[in-house]
Amino acid sequence: MALADGLHANVAALRQSAQNASSGVGLLQTADGALSQVTNLLNRAVTLATEAANGTLNSSQVSSANQEYQNILTEIGNIGSTTNFNGNSVFSATATNVFVSDGTASGATTFSETIGALTTASVGTSSAGAGVDFTAVGVATLSSGMAQNVLTSLTTAIQDVAYQRGTIGANINQLNAASNVASAESVNLTSAENNVRATNYGQATSDMAKFKVLSQTGIAALSQANPVQQDVLKLLQ
Results as ranks from 00 to 15, higher is better:
2 A>T: 08
5 D>L: 14
13 A>D: 02
14 L>E: 04
18 A>E: 09
19 Q>I: 10
19 Q>C: 00
20 N>R: 09
21 A>L: 06
22 S>F: 07
24 G>E: 07
26 G>C: 00
27 L>G: 00
31 A>T: 05
32 D>N: 12
33 G>S: 11
35 L>R: 03
37 Q>I: 09
37 Q>C: 07
43 N>Q: 15
45 A>L: 10
46 V>Q: 15
50 T>A: 09
51 E>D: 09
55 G>M: 12
57 L>P: 03
58 N>K: 13
59 S>G: 05
59 S>R: 15
59 S>I: 11
59 S>Y: 07
61 Q>F: 04
63 S>L: 07
66 N>I: 06
66 N>P: 13
67 Q>P: 00
68 E>Y: 00
70 Q>L: 09
70 Q>C: 02
70 Q>D: 06
70 Q>R: 12
71 N>V: 08
72 I>M: 02
75 E>Q: 15
76 I>E: 02
77 G>H: 05
78 N>Y: 09
80 G>L: 06
80 G>N: 01
82 T>F: 04
83 T>D: 01
83 T>A: 04
83 T>W: 06
84 N>G: 12
84 N>C: 00
86 N>C: 00
87 G>D: 06
87 G>Y: 10
87 G>V: 10
91 F>T: 00
92 S>C: 01
100 V>M: 02
100 V>N: 03
102 D>Q: 04
103 G>H: 10
108 A>G: 07
110 T>E: 03
111 F>P: 08
112 S>W: 09
112 S>C: 08
115 I>K: 10
115 I>T: 05
116 G>Q: 03
117 A>M: 06
119 T>M: 06
121 A>E: 06
124 G>Y: 00
125 T>V: 09
126 S>W: 04
130 A>Y: 04
131 G>S: 11
133 D>G: 06
134 F>C: 04
134 F>K: 02
135 T>I: 12
141 T>I: 11
143 S>I: 05
149 N>F: 08
150 V>L: 06
151 L>Y: 07
152 T>V: 14
152 T>N: 15
156 T>H: 01
159 Q>P: 11
160 D>V: 06
162 A>L: 11
163 Y>N: 14
167 T>P: 02
171 N>M: 15
172 I>K: 08
173 N>F: 03
175 L>W: 08
175 L>V: 08
177 A>H: 12
186 S>W: 13
187 V>H: 04
188 N>K: 14
192 A>K: 14
194 N>H: 01
195 N>Y: 00
198 A>Y: 13
199 T>Y: 15
200 N>E: 06
203 Q>H: 03
207 D>I: 13
210 K>T: 14
212 K>R: 15
212 K>H: 11
215 S>K: 15
216 Q>L: 12
216 Q>P: 01
218 G>R: 15
219 I>R: 14
221 A>F: 05
221 A>Y: 07
222 L>V: 05
223 S>V: 11
224 Q>F: 07
224 Q>Y: 10
225 A>L: 12
228 V>R: 14
230 Q>M: 13
232 V>T: 12
233 L>C: 02
233 L>I: 13
234 K>F: 11
237 Q>M: 10
